[in-house]
Simulated scan of single mutants.
Amino acid sequence: MDVDTILGLYAQGLFPMDEPGAPELPWWVADPRTVFELDAESLAAVRRRVQRSLRGGPDRVDWELRVDDAFEETIARCAQPRAPGDGVWLTPRMQALYRALRAAGNAHTFEVWVGGELAAGLVSVTIGRAAMLESMFHRVPHAGNALVALTLEALAGGGCALCDIQTATPHTLRLGAVQIPRAEYEARLRVAVYG
């Protein structure tokens, strides 16, 4: 599948999720769709929730956000099972898709570094002013939450209009993600991609 076809599918509101044994990479839709809002009030609320999650943790951690410094390591870590017996979502053909999109300038990694070490990372696909946060890992407590807050602030500061995470988890909802109807998502996506 070429990059233009992949970007066209994303622009229609689809997202890839591999299945064992599927002859071709499956593409999916979600209704409702889950997004992080990028207005100042929503960003401040996410930051407050992340700060609350740090209570009882380290007194002070200097989270450093970097972009694309460790693309391959982030992909590799996202491809590892999260717990024994878990499946692998980021399969070799998903990794190949992200590498192709990166070569075209449409895939990036956002990374949190602590003391010169990679603490957490996520893969994002970008088209126009839309960002789709695809997969994430963390190896330091609380680094994943810090990464979400810092990434959202960076996206908003860069002019991003829509931040999609496809489907909700209890954790992302606690952080401030919201669910919207598919039709609303697709309308907002068109504006973010095509202006």
Rank of each mutant, 00 (worst) to 15 (best):
M1T: 14
D2A: 09
D2H: 08
T5N: 06
Y10F: 09
G13W: 05
G13M: 07
M17R: 10
M17H: 07
G21C: 04
A22Q: 13
E24G: 02
L25E: 02
P26N: 08
W28R: 11
W28I: 11
T34A: 08
A40C: 10
A40P: 06
A44F: 12
A44H: 12
A44I: 13
A45P: 13
A45N: 13
R48M: 04
V50M: 04
G56C: 05
P58M: 06
V61C: 09
D62H: 11
E64N: 04
E64T: 04
F71R: 00
T74H: 00
P84V: 14
G87W: 03
W89P: 00
L90N: 09
Q95A: 13
R99V: 14
A100P: 07
L101I: 05
R102C: 05
A104S: 13
N106A: 15
F110W: 14
F110E: 06
V114W: 12
G116N: 10
L122C: 15
L133M: 15
H138W: 05
H138F: 03
H138Y: 10
R139T: 13
H142K: 03
N145I: 04
A146R: 01
L150T: 04
A154F: 06
A156I: 04
T167W: 08
A168D: 12
A168R: 07
A168C: 09
T169C: 06
T172W: 13
Q179F: 13
A183S: 12
E184T: 02
L189C: 02
R190Y: 09
G195M: 07
